[in-house]
Structures are given as C-alpha cells and as structure tokens.
C-alpha cells in the first residue's frame, strides 16, 4: 500500500471540510464545551478542597457520667463521657463520645472523637476523625476536622475522582463520538454526490482509499482533542495551582489516557463508522448507526468502575488499550475484506 496515495485522499477530504464551516463548527463544539465544563467542575472542587478548617469551638464540657464498653439503647445522655460503647436511638447533649458507634441519634454541643454515625443529626458539635454516613445530617455550626469523611479530604478525593475518571471519560467519549459527524459521511457522501465512480476508476487500491478516509477523520478529530486537552490543562492548572499548591493535571493517567488510549478509541470509532458508511446508502442511516457505536465504548468504561473492577489507572487503561487494538485489527481486516467496489457502486438508491 502506498501511504502517499492515502494521504492524497485525506488531503482532498481536509479541503472539503475546510470549505464547509459547519463541519468544523460541529467538530470543534464538543472539545470547546468540554474544556469549559472541566474548568467549571475542577475549580470549585479545588477551592473547597483547599479550605482550611475553622478553629474548634470551646464546648465547655462538664462531664458528670461515665460509660465504658456498654450498649446504650433509647437513652438521653447529658454531660456524659461515653467510651468504646454503642448508642442506639438516643439523644446526646453536651457530652464527649469517644471510639463509639451512634445510630439514630441526635447530638447537640458534643465532642465526637473517632465515632461512626448512622442516621444521625449533628447540631453544633465538633467531629474529629469520624465517619458520618447513611442518611446522617450535619447541621450548621458543626465543625469537622481530622481525617473525617466529608471534610476537606472528601473534596480532595472528589476532585481526584472528577479529574482522573470523570473528565477522562469525556475524552474517551469525544474520541468515539466526534468522528461520527464526518466518518459516517466518508463513503455515503461520495455516493450521494456521485463522486464515487470517477474515484473508483483511479488506480487507488481498496487499502489506500480506506486508509485515506481513516486519516481524513483521525487528523482533525485528534487535533481538536489535543487542543482541548491543552486548553483544559492550562486553564485548570492556572486556576487550581494557587489553591492546591501543585499541578492537578497532567499526570501519568492523563498522559496515557490522552496520548495512547484516546487515539486508539478514536480510530476504532472511525473504522466502525467507515465500515457502516461503505455499507449503507444514505447519510441519515449512516448517522443513525454511528450514534449506536458510542454505546459499547461507553459500556466498557461504565462496567469497570461500577463493578469495582477498575478505576481509571494506567494499568486499567493498558488492558483496555490492548483490547481495543484487537478490536481495531479485526475492524481493519473486516473493512478490507468486505469493501466491495461493485456493491458500493451498484447499490445506489
């Protein structure tokens, strides 16, 4: 195969894209929105994660009762010191709870140290190194500190989840969704404009024609994705580095994601679209099918985290990249094997 010939086909398609401003506009829309969206998510989270906790108030505890290693049920505790105990269905007033579990409890003006709370309502408390979950409500004036879930660390982990999973997913989605606009048109467009017959009468081989069509879609789509990545990285780092004290992105996950996995996903999407385009007879049908292509790719990235089999790590992406390379090899083989000039030429509507 002569790559120079494929490049000539691709350059012709670039010229057609350039001549049609709507194609460029629709292509550029997604990465631009993506960049803005990323900044809108990352900056507030970084701001929350960087906040210093307020100083703990002096609760003026006057502890009168002491409970140690007991199970308390349907109890009201006033000025109590509860140690290594469980409290079920109770009210805790101005007490000190240490290394205990509270369930269905309303706590007021108390110091909770290393406590696990379920279905709790905390009003004006100090919460240190504790966990509150399961429908608990933290009312105003409650101060959270230490490694307590829900504190600054929660925002940090949320920021990490957003930047290393959620935003990266969007790049994968862009890589598979953006080519549909133009790849689904690659052969159908030539058919409907009646340009296919003279094109097929040239000395181009099937491979040169197909790879020309791949390149024609891959280059603009990946260029826009990389530009979006550069803009997003610059904006996020510019706005979050002063808050966090370090550069949020890029890191190894992002670099592998954007420079290895995204191009592979992109070309898999293109190969699927080009295959469909060579098999159908009108643009609408091609685009309907192309819309479905996004689903299996989305599924791969949803199944992993949902089943706990893999958050987005370099290792997870390497596995997915190898799997997609296999899919790509199959699609290229399928495209070459099933590319039938006669069918394409004689099945015009």
């Amino acid at each position: 195969m002569r790559m120079r010939k494929a490049w000539i086909v691709a350059r012709k398609d670039f010229s057609e894209f350039r001549a049609n401003k709507h194609i460029i506009a629709t292509l550029a829309m997604m990465p631009i929105l993506m960049s803005v969206f990323s900044v809108l998510i990352a900056v507030p989270l970084a701001s929350l994660a960087s906040q210093e906790p307020p100083p703990e108030p002096d609760l003026h505890l006057n502890l009168l009762v002491f409970y140690d290693h007991v199970d308390l049920k349907d109890t009201t505790l006033n000025n109590a010191w509860v140690n290594f105990s469980t409290v079920l269905n109770g009210i805790v007033n101005v007490s000190y709870i240490n290394n205990s579990t509270l369930t269905n409890v309303i706590a007021y003006g108390s110091l909770l140290d290393n406590v696990s709370i379920a279905n709790g309502i905390l009003i004006g408390c100090v919460l240190r190194n504790s966990q509150y979950g399961q429908n608990s409500t933290v009312m105003i004036d409650t101060v959270i500190s230490g490694t307590t879930t829900g504190s600054r660390e929660l925002y940090k982990s949320l920021l990490d989840l957003m930047t290393h999973s959620f935003l990266l997913y969007f790049f994968f989605i862009m890589a598979v969704a953006m080519p549909t606009t133009i790849a689904s048109y690659s052969f159908v467009g030539e058919k409907t404009n009646k340009t296919l017959e003279p094109l097929l009468s040239t000395p181009l081989t099937d491979g040169e024609l197909l790879f020309g069509k791949y390149i024609a879609v891959f280059v603009p789509v990946m260029s826009l994705i990389l530009v979006a990545f550069a803009i997003m990285t610059a904006l996020i780092d510019l706005l979050t580095a002063p808050l966090l004290g370090y550069l949020l992105i890029p890191d190894a996950v992002w670099l592998v994601g954007v420079f290895v996995l995204t191009p592979i996903i992109c070309i898999v999407g293109i190969a699927m679209n080009v295959y469909i385009s060579s098999k159908v007879n009108d643009v609408r049908t091609a685009q309907q099918y192309s819309a479905l292509i996004v689903l299996p790719v989305l599924l791969v990235f949803v199944i992993g985290p949902v089943t706990g089999m893999g958050s987005i790590t370099v290792g997870f992406m390497t596995i997915i990249a190898i799997a997609f390379l296999g899919v790509l090899a199959f699609l290229v083989w399928l495209n070459l094997r099933r590319f039938n000039r006669e069918d394409i030429l004689t099945s015009w509507k």
Partner: peptide, 22 residues
C-alpha cells in the same frame, strides 16, 4: 462517467489537482 461527479465545495483547479496527484 454519465454524471460528472465533481467535488462541489472545491474549486475546479483543486478537483483537477486531486486527480492529477492520484
């Protein structure tokens, strides 16, 4: 061919250049 089948959004010269290069 029976239908000219030219690239409508490209200039006459660009159409010919493409085929010449091919």
């Amino acid at each position: 061919p029976e239908n000219p089948g030219l690239y409508e959004s490209l200039s006459a010269e660009r159409n010919l250049r493409f085929y010449g290069e091919i």
